[in-house]
Design a protein around this nucleic acid. Structure first.
Lengths: 186, 186
DNA sequence: TCGAACATGTAAAAGGTTACATGATTAC
DNA sequence: GTAATCATGTAACCTTTTACATGTTCGA
């Protein structure tokens, strides 16, 4: 699912500029997706060329050169097709878990600093999500995305609290014959 | 944290080939990172050029041209530096949550199919992780990565079970003035 | 014998981020 | 007056995936 699909989705709620779309992503998608201007603006241009969105320029209203994009009928169809066709997978890239996997190599203080860093990050995300959870009436789907974020961050924070001491105490021990004894699907 | 760092990490446990490294990633990293041969082999070549790994060829033992890589002292130092320096962030790209965010556009049957698909995926990952959790003695860090995976997948499965009916019943309702009433950090 | 696992690699393409470049408006 | 927000865009770079290309060995 690429930025183009996300832009179509954003415009399915209401017309907006590239800037508006970026704001929506930051406000609503922050815990499960992200996109930069460098991908949004080219995507919108491409979508317009493909007839999936239309564009009207609103000059002078407040800001110059405000390009308001609207989803066309073809765009709505393409969005539904993308959502239906593309696998609903999750691509997780957690540098934090990678770090823990190799934690036996780190000095204790460096590991402690990382644990603090990730804990602050989790708390910040959790606070934000708890704040928006009841802010307005969401669709069941949107409420789900928020609730999953809340539960997952709570789980992660709890595990972090439970295991902090064990991680700091234990992190120098090396596993014996990891690949021989533990490879599971061989 | 790039594939190069991951390769250094894999070799910190024991010497191995590109193929071995890929297997370790599949066995141990599957729920928080992934890497293909197309990135691993070039990474190893680059690491060798940089003196961070060394390579000895084992011909004829069982398979021809088996290139065994070892971490050098410089490589171990570079790994520790990477792990310490790079932010321990998490980059999550959940096409499933994106789909739910726009679920109001989908026919009920298409949504139901997606819910089934993701549930199967979660269960499969959870079963796998539960299987390896007690398979051998892990470092505290490795045990943590497994336990976090288990708890997160359990949370996700539970939410999915709780909300399935609500999602299927409710998914056509549109949020009123999402951007005006709900944008949180404005 | 046939498919799975072992084993290495390349090239093109896709997809995205970062940094840069610009300038008006609004709130303090 | 000055910092944040609004607003658009490009270009270079980075990383990774996908698809291709090749060949052996082992177990059923």
């Amino acid at each position: 699912m690429s930025v183009k699909t996300l832009c179509l989705g954003a415009l399915s709620f209401e017309d907006g500029t590239g800037y508006d779309i970026k704001k929506l992503f930051e406000a609503a998608f922050s815990h499960f997706h992200s996109a930069s201007y460098g991908s949004i603006y080219p995507a919108l241009r491409q979508l317009e060329a493909d007839g999936l969105v239309s564009c009207r320029v609103e000059p002078g209203e407040r800001h110059p050169d405000r390009k308001l994009f609207s989803l066309t009928e073809a765009g709505r169809a393409a969005l539904i097709e993308d959502l239906t066709r593309l696998p609903a997978a999750e691509a997780i890239r957690s540098d934090f878990l990678v770090l823990l996997f190799f934690a036996h190599l780190l000095p204790t203080e460096a590991l402690a600093a990382k644990l603090d860093e990730i804990e602050r990050y989790y708390r910040q995300e959790l606070d934000y999500l708890e704040g928006i959870a009841d802010a307005c009436e969401h669709t069941a789907g949107i409420a789900y995305t928020i609730e999953q974020g809340i539960r997952v961050y709570r789980s992660k924070l709890q595990l972090l609290t439970e295991r902090r001491a064990a991680l700091l105490a234990d992190h120098r021990k090396l596993p014996k014959e990891w690949s021989a004894a533990c490879s599971p699907s061989d």
